[in-house]
Design a protein around this nucleic acid. Structure first.
Lengths: 182, 182
DNA sequence: TTGACAAGTAAACAAGCGTCTACTAACTCT
DNA sequence: AGAGTTAGTAGACGCTTGTTTACTTGTCAA
């Protein structure tokens, strides 16, 4: 066994991210994470402190939703709509996004999640908007983003597979335009 | 102590509903429920079987969202928008609705939740709609309803208190009209 | 009044959890 | 080559969980 702290801690972080995304915070144990990473349980605590801290670090891994938000403000509604339509259809979704949906209900986790959503979604969308109360409108957009996650979690991927995906995307786009416009 | 099975089991059910709504499925223990109901822990299992079964029964207690959906289909978007706007402002929310938001991530609970949302939200909204794919449009409405729950859970009640609540309600109404119309 | 049934109780069960401590073994530097 | 640092390990600790078992107590019919 080669000894490489950096590689090991990275494997732990990735294992944590994937498992939290797949099964939710409460369902994942430290021992599961260690096993998935091929590491010892004690190392998880040694490198990341507590389970909640590990969750927070995994959340900070970075999400591609940020790149969807960035870009031409005029096309923001369309990009978000496309992203959500894909999420409702496709089985493969980005880990960090799923972590948010399946996060637990403990106060500590809620606080971590709150900060993450505020920083990566609300603030960044609000920064793209003109007119009064940009954060209020960004909050409505977040409602749709988080709602899509809930629906996907409950109904499973491919829930709109059988029906017209393009129509859904068009509706989502119109809804985003309403909630984002000044 | 008067011995009354019916009253005791009702107290347990109400305690479970309120605690699940307040803290989420995973954070609530059987002992907490028993204490809140002023009953013995063993009775909770005796009367309701398992924790998950108790959760399911508490969920079936009935929600006022059903009465919001029922009524004149023409005013459905407005009624839903009003309901959600109130939910984003007010501290007091109906227990069953909060149970849905704060439910756990275990497969068993997900299945219970899936059935509940499908029966009380999707089906009932779809029944009000004309045109093709009513369930697809009901699913988009459910996205907003569930999304509001997530936002409220993360950001706390009163998140839009400081800003213009009427404007938010108007936006929500327009968004619902788009996702519900044929 | 007594006996039987049901409501309620106390205590333990077995399992699982996150976390920590004491130890081993590999790598590095002089 | 040997000492010191550090990655990695094994195992236990203490606690909490949902659930069950064995027991006690109140209630009501005969």
């Amino acid at each position: 066994m080669t000894r490489d702290r950096e590689a090991t801690s990275r494997r732990i972080l990735e294992a944590a991210r994937d498992l939290f995304a797949a099964h939710g915070y409460d369902q994942v144990t430290m021992r599961m994470i260690a096993a998935e990473a091929g590491a010892n349980v004690a190392l998880v605590n040694r490198y990341f402190g507590t389970k909640a801290a590990l969750f927070a670090e995994a959340l900070a891994t970075g999400s591609t939703i940020e790149s969807v938000i960035a870009g031409d403000p005029a096309g923001l509604a369309g990009r978000l709509a496309h992203r959500l339509a894909v999420r409702l259809q496709s089985g493969a979704t980005e880990p960090v996004t799923r972590m948010v949906d399946r996060a637990g209900t403990s106060p500590e986790i809620q606080a971590i999640l709150h900060a993450h959503v505020e920083a990566t979604i609300i603030k960044r969308i609000a920064a793209q908007l003109d007119g009064p109360h940009p954060e209020q409108r960004a909050l409505l957009a977040a409602t749709m983003i988080l709602g899509t996650g809930s629906v996907r979690r409950l109904f499973g991927p491919g829930v709109i597979e059988a029906v017209d995906a393009e129509e859904v995307e068009a509706r989502l786009k119109a809804m985003f335009e309403i909630c984002l416009r000044p």
